[in-house]
Write a protein that binds this DNA or RNA. Structure first.
Length: 955
RNA sequence: GGGCCUGUAGCUCAGCUGGUUAGAGCACACGCUUGAUAAGCGUGGGGUCGGUAGUUCGAAUCUACCCAGGCCCA
């Protein structure tokens, strides 16, 4: 038998089936660098409307993890898609370089050497460390295919950026919202330093456990008696529980939960404190804590004399158990009923909650304790004592006063210094703040967020709640690696001074020498000659040692980035970060921008969720369920990670794991192979010379194009809304269902067996070319390497790289609803025919569908439709023959299956095709001429013509 | 404990303002093909929509509570 195979126009392409991304990706990325792709895109878009996605700076520490991948790939896809949509979309990556984690790491690395280093030298070590990780992460991000201005990233530690930070601070100073106030922080008495939360370790500790009585003042008791007559005539008190007796001297309030029920219980104990008073006392305890408290005290409480809500106690006044001053009743939501009495001793200078409550009620942040933990000398009873030594003193004084109801010890976890492992205390210290209300900052922030578009929409609600409830911004840190607050102190009276003259001069010096100058240069360089202390008129000043909160650094990035990139239009189009940044960067950036320009720095804010494992649990090294991007890249390639990012719903938590990645790899293969077969059928197609005008295309080709038009239009809309999942799902469905399973399958006969120049073949290639080129561009932002590689295997493309091309323009013009509706019906029939063919196949009557013939009997509108497409039907079913009859399909007694659609019905009968198999096109046709042996018959008439056409071409 | 969010087939996702037997792709099973071949085609099985209780003639779709999970606070 002759081998006809090489007389066919079989697909051929250099685009490999196996992606081999591990080696292809670095090569393609290297090519981008060689051709200066980023710069060429900038040139090409010069003058186009700008679209700026402003990069949130990752912290310059550690290697990148899967969360970075999600974040950076999303950004890259958006930037690339906006670029291909016609915008000038520059992308300037950034890094957050200052801050505690680096300081601690460097501290660790330096060990004892740090002792002999100046602050400036230590900062230089930190800078080297940060730069090392900037370089490392930059390489990793680029390996992911992220395109950007990697040669000129912004870094919060560069001189111009540091100057921008100080200038931003100056704007707040100018608006008179920067002030110095007291706030409790973790304080290590041993190291005499403030500790960040990360430097605190919780260890087991045994503490005193004391129940202390605060007597209610007469007026409040009288008011209470009015509401609850049963209490009338009794001295009333409230019982609190604490594990830090030494904070009692700093008590200013007693906190109650507004919604909790409190009982007033008859108690003899009160009488002790009122020696000689014959009246029985009463004590306030949360009802739900009565039994536990009674057990701890070793006594019984009867039923309550009266019951009241916590909110009824707001504003009640109590007497301090040791001093002659008031302690006021306040309300707080954090009061729990898990321990204690439900009434919480409150010392605003010694606790975070206490402080917040104190601020709300305008209480003094009282903490008469020095840096070494010694009470000020003028404090009664405990003056001069160290805080922990003061515990027994306080207990004794309370007992003497008759206010100590019970004393025990308790084992619990207590914060310790991670360095020296001594217990730490909460101690109010002087800090710099930006006031949220004095300058109306909070109000302006709340109104600014309304003008921002939030993706998802609930983001606005989330940030609103935070802004509405947050305290003033504490912007100072007692650290070395950061931007110094350029304030000074009067040498004479210790008054803190911070003026715009100071920030201006600091900004100028920092811009030239970097912020290390603050530690190395004479203070005189920063102090204007005419500066006088506003308190005492002094002219001698010393510099502040605090640095700025790093959130102020990164929050200034919208200003800092402009130093190297003045071409960027402020405000920016999009910020895109994880949902933790509502409290972090979105928040600080908004506040800084309101300070510098009185507007939000972003028009749109997009958030993504966190990456969790396959069962939805958070990732942690200890559980061992982490997924390392480096491993995935090595095994499967970065494009797989990118496709993963685009296929999941990034707005909520996103899952990843081996099984999910298997699915992604499958999806990638399908996309790649389908696009490959399109390219492979275009090997001899030159669109300029061979393209068939639209109105001369076969109907099925116009149908494929119409569906492509729908898909492309939908994809473009999805990109605009950042709905990458819709992009991939739409394209993927189209490629698998429309193209691979239907169009290409149906096209094979036409493409392979006809003469190469046959109009019917060129018609198919015209559609394939438009579809392949279009889909390649539409997927390019997501799979930039694969699509660029494919792009270069497509005929007739003008751009050097798909990334220099534009998205398809006006794809909706290809859509023809009537045409699509007709073919949707035909495809419905095709499914039904396939069902019948499958039965033949299962019965071993036929193998391939070309061995079968179909007989259709149709009625209604369907009959007309089929009649109009009579010549297309065999191709549609990929059978060798179809005979069509018009007539009642549902007649009784006949064989076959019924297919019913919206307008009409068709009876489907299938059987073996007659005739003999053409050895070239494999269709079963009636033997040409009546040869003695059909098996030796030559090729069919159609193939004969095709061969003649090819011969003519060669000649 | 509070703010915001999530829970539909093994996986990734559709299911608009409540209304026919809950859909798609992948995976899986079976078969076909060997002219997309470490490919391709066809057919099929599989969810009662996290749980409970309500509202309603009717709920995956509304309400309440509960369970599981995520981010941020405490």
């Amino acid at each position: 038998m002759a081998d006809w195979k090489h007389t066919l126009n079989l697909p051929r392409t250099g685009f490999p089936m196996r992606a081999n991304l591990q080696t292809t990706e670095p090569a393609v990325i290297a090519r981008w660098n060689e051709m200066g792709l980023y710069a060429r895109i900038r040139e090409r878009r010069a003058g186009a409307p700008q679209f700026v996605l402003h990069d949130g700076p990752p912290y310059a520490n550690g290697k990148i993890h899967i969360g970075h991948v999600l974040n950076k790939v999303l950004k890259d896809v958006i930037v690339r898609s906006r670029t291909m949509a016609g915008f000038d979309a520059p992308y300037v990556p950034g890094w957050d370089c200052h801050g505690l984690p680096i300081e601690l790491k460097v501290d660790q690395e330096l060990g004892g050497k740090k002792r002999h280093m100046s602050v400036a030298d230590f900062r230089r070590a930190c800078r080297r460390y940060a730069q090392k990780f900037v370089d490392r992460q930059s390489a990793d991000f680029q390996r992911l295919g992220v395109l950007g201005d990697w040669d000129r990233p912004y870094r919060t530690m560069t001189p111009d950026y540091q100057a921008a930070i100080v200038r931003a601070l100056g704007r707040f100073v100018e608006q008179r919202v920067v002030y110095k106030g007291k706030k409790p922080v973790h304080w290590c008495l041993h190291c005499r330093t403030a500790l960040a939360e990360a430097e605190v370790e919780y260890e087991d500790h045994t503490s005193p456990s004391i129940y202390v009585e605060f007597p209610m003042r007469e007026a409040s008791a009288a008011a209470l008696a009015e509401k609850a007559p049963a209490v009338a005539g009794r001295p009333v008190s409230v019982l609190i529980w604490t594990t830090t007796p030494w904070t009692i001297p700093s008590n200013l309030a007693v906190a109650f939960h507004p919604g909790v029920d409190y009982g007033v219980y008859a108690a003899d104990g009160v009488a002790e404190a009122h020696a000689g008073d014959e009246r029985g006392g009463a004590v306030i305890i949360a009802e739900k804590r009565r039994d536990a408290t009674a057990a701890a005290l070793g006594r019984d409480f009867g039923p309550p004399l009266a019951t009241l809500k916590g909110r009824d106690l707001e504003g009640a006044t109590f007497g301090h158990p040791l001093y002659d001053r008031d302690s006021v009743g306040v309300l707080a939501d954090y009061v729990t009923l898990e321990q204690g009495t439900g009434a919480v001793h409150t010392a605003p200078g010694h606790g975070a909650d206490d402080y917040a409550t104190g601020v709300r009620y305008g209480l003094d942040v009282h903490a008469p304790i020095g840096p070494s933990g010694r009470f000020d000398d003028d404090v009664e009873i405990v003056g001069g004592q160290k805080v922990f030594d003061a515990n027994p003193t306080v207990e004794a004084a309370l007992a003497d006063a008759g206010r100590l109801w019970h004393r025990d010890t308790v084992d619990h976890t207590y914060p310790h210094c991670w360095r020296c492992h001594h217990p730490v205390i909460f101690l109010a210290t002087w800090q710099w703040f930006i006031g949220l209300d004095t300058g109306g900052l909070r109000g302006r922030a709340l109104s600014a967020i309304r003008g921002v578009e939030w993706f998802p929409e609930w983001g606005e609600e989330r940030i609103r709640n935070m802004l509405a409830n947050r305290p003033d911004w504490c912007i100072s840190r007692q650290r070395s690696w950061g931007v110094p607050i350029p304030a000074v102190y009067c040498a004479a009276c210790r008054e803190a001074v911070l003026t715009t003259a100071l920030t201006d001069r600091a900004a100028a010096v920092f811009a030239e020498h970097g912020a290390d100058a603050w530690y190395e240069r004479d203070v005189g360089e920063f102090v204007p000659p005419d500066l006088r202390c506003p308190a005492c008129g002094g002219a001698e000043f010393e510099r502040e040692r605090d640095i700025l909160d790093v959130w102020f650094d990164s929050g200034s990035s919208h200003e800092g980035v402009l130093g190297d990139h003045p071409e960027l239009d402020w405000p920016y189009n999009v910020y895109l970060e994880g949902s933790d940044q509502y409290r972090g960067w979105f928040h600080s950036s908004l506040l800084v921008a309101l300070g510098t320009r009185n507007a939000a720095p972003y028009r749109q804010v997009i958030t993504h969720g966190f990456v969790v494992d396959e069962s939805g649990r958070k990732m942690s090294k200890s559980i061992g369920n982490t997924v390392e991007p480096q491993t995935i890249i090595r095994q499967s390639g970065a494009e797989i990670l990118r496709l993963w990012v685009a296929m999941v719903d990034y707005r909520e938590e996103v899952r990843i794991g081996p099984h999910i990645l298997d699915r992604i790899v499958e999806a990638y293969r399908k996309i790649r192979n389908t696009l490959r077969i399109l390219a492979a059928n275009l090997y001899d197609f030159d669109p300029a010379a061979h393209a068939v005008p639209r109105d001369e295309l076969l109907e099925v080709d116009r149908y494929a194009l119409a569906r492509y038009g729908e898909v492309a239009a939908r994809v473009l809309r999805a990109y605009e809304r950042y709905e990458l999942q819709t992009v991939v799902r739409t394209v993927n469905n189209y490629l698998t269902v429309d193209i691979s399973a239907f169009y290409v399958d149906v096209l094979k006969d036409r493409l392979y067996t006809l003469g190469p120049r046959a109009h019917r073949r060129r018609s198919a290639q015209t559609a394939l070319h438009a579809i392949a080129g279009g889909i390649t561009r539409l997927l390019a932002p997501i799979l930039p390497v694969t699509c660029d590689e494919l792009w270069r295997h497509l005929p007739g493309v003008d751009a050097d790289s798909v990334h220099l091309a534009d998205f398809p323009a006006e794809p909706e013009s290809l859509v023809d609803p009537d045409l699509i509706a007709r073919w949707t019906r035909l495809l419905g029939l095709r499914d039904a025919v396939n069902g019948e063919l499958e039965k033949l196949r299962q019965d071993k009557v036929v193998g391939t569908s070309l061995e079968a013939a179909v007989t259709l009997t149709a009625d209604g509108g369907l009959a007309g439709l089929l009649e109009a497409h009579r010549d297309d039907l065999a191709t549609l079913f990929i059978t060798s023959a179809v005979s069509l009859r018009t007539g009642p399909a549902a007649g009784g007694g006949e064989s076959g299956a019924l297919h019913r659609d919206a307008d009409g019905c068709a009876r489907i009968e299938v059987g073996r095709a007659d005739g003999a198999k053409c050895p070239r096109c494999w269709r079963w046709v009636m033997p040409r001429g009546a040869g003695p042996d059909p098996a030796e018959a030559a090729v069919c008439d159609r193939c004969t013509n095709a061969l003649a056409d090819m011969a003519a071409t060669v000649a």
